[in-house]
Design a binder for these strands. Structure first.
Lengths: 214, 214
DNA sequence: GTCATCATGTAAGCCGTTACATGATTGC
DNA sequence: GCAATCATGTAACGGCTTACATGATGAC
């Protein structure tokens, strides 16, 4: 049911939620800043964007040249418009569709809806690390109770993992020092994750009760 | 260069290093006990075994029925032989190659060599988590100095990751609370990993110096 | 003026997942 | 006897990686 590429799609829509960006920068943010995927090749990034465009979830506008996006968001209006003009001039020869200028992607209303469906959906029973990380990264788009649900589902899935590990760890491999070492480290990572989730749940609850109190 | 499937191959050869096992059990050990892959489908497990067999890295012997492998390795001789006979009798009708009895895989000498090449090889610059976990799990097969090298390479790659995160974390996404939260947790996981590696390196050094001292 | 980086894409091939198909064994 | 689990496989489909191809920009 749930294809892996859905997470890439979701991450793309997620970073486009607040900002219009071009493909190269989208990849940079997903991989280098959010660290959601260890790597994404352009061979999967650009086709993904094309797919999303076909589905009407993003729109393409001919982009401003490099450098304008990063610095001085204040100068946007003047500098930005000029930049777009420059961009069009450079690429605006005969061969319009093949122009290699930067393509800036904008989330459409449909895209917003799909993204919202993504983060809210229960479709995976919380057993996938990647699914959780991606959802949490964009959990700002969720209702507080959904956020709490997400976290609690994650916690119970981590606890299940921990218990499974306790049972299975005691058989054939255990005589190998290094294998054991890897197993134990995995377990301790899970324990860490659980207490992290617990903190998140606590602060989420605090925030909710503060909100309903005042 | 390095295909993902190589890690599955390596893990298979690794668990077969000390024990002859059948496919289902190999998968159980790799996934449930070692936790090296979050999941492997049989659709990739069995083809992998077939590939390794074609390459002469593993050999297939018709297996004993279920239950014999887990309990009482002592009774092996008598119980085992009888079991093999039973296994053959059950499936040994007309359609010999199609027999669906358990297939028990044994590592060949060539397989041992390939496995040894796997763990020792430097071919990846240490930037892949999976590669490291798999190597460490079977690091018992390494010379102490190679083990130390493996750990030190891992440490420097984690430190690089940490530094990269410090630089890139401070730009556009940072206004989002949950994105920030994911980023910080990733960083703290890396810090944890580094201190874990440091402990391993220390105990490895201690072991080496003890060994050369006595 | 050239090199590194930014920027976008296409095509091939691999491989892993999914779904399907079969059958043995164990526990109830 | 029936269900769940153990156990092994095949075929199709999708998508990711790799390699290739192109070109602009900025720094030195």
């Amino acid at each position: 049911m749930k294809k892996r590429s859905h997470f890439l799609d979701m991450a793309i829509l997620g970073v486009l939620r607040n900002r219009d960006l071009h493909g190269y920068e989208i990849k940079r943010q997903i991989v280098d800043e959010l660290g959601l995927f260890t790597s994404i090749s352009f061979g999967s990034m650009y086709p993904a964007l094309a797919r999303l465009e076909r589905l009407g979830l993003v729109e393409v506008t001919q982009g401003r040249p490099r450098g304008q996006l990063r610095q001085a968001p204040f100068t946007g209006s003047l500098g930005g418009e000029r930049a777009i003009a420059v961009g069009l001039r450079v690429t605006g020869g005969a061969d319009e569709t093949r122009s290699r200028g930067k393509k800036v992607y904008t989330l459409t209303e449909a895209g917003r809806g799909t993204f919202s469906g993504f983060v809210n959906d229960d479709f995976d029973h919380g057993d996938d690390d990647l699914a959780f990380r991606v959802r949490l990264a964009f959990a700002g788009a969720l209702e507080p109770e959904m956020r709490l649900k997400l976290l609690e589902r994650r916690r119970s899935s981590l606890e299940a993992r921990l218990n499974k590990g306790k049972f299975s760890g005691s058989r054939s491999i255990l005589d190998d020092l290094y294998a054991k070492c890897v197993i134990e480290h995995t377990q301790s990572e899970t324990v860490n994750d659980i207490s992290w989730i617990n903190e998140l749940i606590d602060s989420e609850r605090r925030r909710i009760s503060e909100h309903t109190a005042q």
